[in-house]
Design a protein around this nucleic acid. Sequence first.
DNA 1: CGGATTCTTGACGAGAATCAAGAGTTGTGG
DNA 2: CCACAACTCTTGATTCTCGTCAAGAATCCG
Lengths: 242, 242
Amino acid sequence: MRQTKREAFPALPPGFKSTFLDALTPREISALLQSARSITISPHEVLQQEGEPADRLWLLRTGRVAVYRLTRGGNKLFLRWGVPGDAFGFGTIVRAPAQYLVTIEAVQEASILAWNLATCQALISRYPGLSRGVNGSLSKYLDSIIDMFVMCQLQSSEERLARVLVESANQLGHAGPEGIEVDLKNEEVALAAHMSLFTASRHLSKWQRTGLLKKHRGKIVVPSLCPFEKDPFSLPIPGDPL
Amino acid sequence: MRQTKREAFPALPPGFKSTFLDALTPREISALLQSARSITISPHEVLQQEGEPADRLWLLRTGRVAVYRLTRGGNKLFLRWGVPGDAFGFGTIVRAPAQYLVTIEAVQEASILAWNLATCQALISRYPGLSRGVNGSLSKYLDSIIDMFVMCQLQSSEERLARVLVESANQLGHAGPEGIEVDLKNEEVALAAHMSLFTASRHLSKWQRTGLLKKHRGKIVVPSLCPFEKDPFSLPIPGDPL
DNA sequence: CGGATTCTTGACGAGAATCAAGAGTTGTGG
DNA sequence: CCACAACTCTTGATTCTCGTCAAGAATCCG
């Protein structure tokens, strides 16, 4: 119902849905959008880097981003994908002055709305619904991080990779002649599934031999036969490890 | 400054500090405390169980609790310690109707303030500062979970155990004749450090041989020589793995 | 055609879980 | 006060998963 109204906003793409805006009235959303600055970024561009002072709040309009932590060695530790409707940079309004605590990078061409620190502070004191939106978003992130943590602690590399493939197909995949195509390199899937490049390659090769999927350079194709419903890779996996 | 005022509340122990209450005025805190119910629980008692409908918001007054997830096999996946000032059960106010998504259990005798669902809803619409308190708490938890995740992905079992010991000594430890005593069984330390009982035992034995600590049944004693400042176990560990 | 990426595969080894057996500690009841 | 049971901890042997390294194959691009 409220969503129907929100679709009327020219600044937001049709079908746009955001936990972040859920607690706001259409009038408030309108005011929020007007005070935002619109940005476009390309794949591999970095939106925010952990450690930098947090002075911007973002709302992803279209496209996809990856959220990760950098290790001391400069490696990436994947945390989650960001999809349209996701907001980032909460440190800016929650515990200013703060620093970003994750790094965010585009994986697809993305369009973003941004508010600077001063605007955020003005908005937050004016619209209490904004705080509740932040609550909802933070709570969702917390949930998803806990899930990711549980996954990494309890599942084998094979299970993790399968899950990542299904999630990626859902979130980043697009229909192709042979099925759903996911434009990710082995390195990127491995990152998201928290395993080495080689382990990922081995599992993927095995699945390709079994005919579960087809691989190309920088792309994985899974047959579109109902893989959206249930994890198709959960079957070939031996006994439930729990 | 605000903290000085808060110490005046008879319902709160002296020195009590809580992110959750930080955004509220003394008057609001007073109202909040009056509408709370006070509870006491003993070690191993379960405060909330994941999956149950979230109908209570908690604030830990004194004592310690453990926050964890249950696996399908009934095993525990440790997430964090809860210390006085920590609040739990945010689902109750953030996305009602909700279910608890973690299990919380006392590890020490604990005293807790609780608000039921109806009260929460009344309070949340009345005091916008409450939302900001929730924001701060959620953001803190998110940060700590990410840290825990990073730790588990990048550090060896030895490093993790060392870190857990130091943290446990800080949070649960009490002074004894030979040093700081931590009343945890091997099984519990292993749980917190995310490793098997046996791996934990091996590392602890090794450290005991080196003289870094002393062990008893259900208790670990670390010499109180400045272990509060810096991780004393970081030294014997070989090259930095990153 | 090079040159740069990306991917594959095998060999090897480190780390940690599992299993098994037993030693040490605590508490209880006779 | 001792004997026994229950619990907790230790240690070694074994196994498994997965990361690392090395070498080379496949693909893409200028």
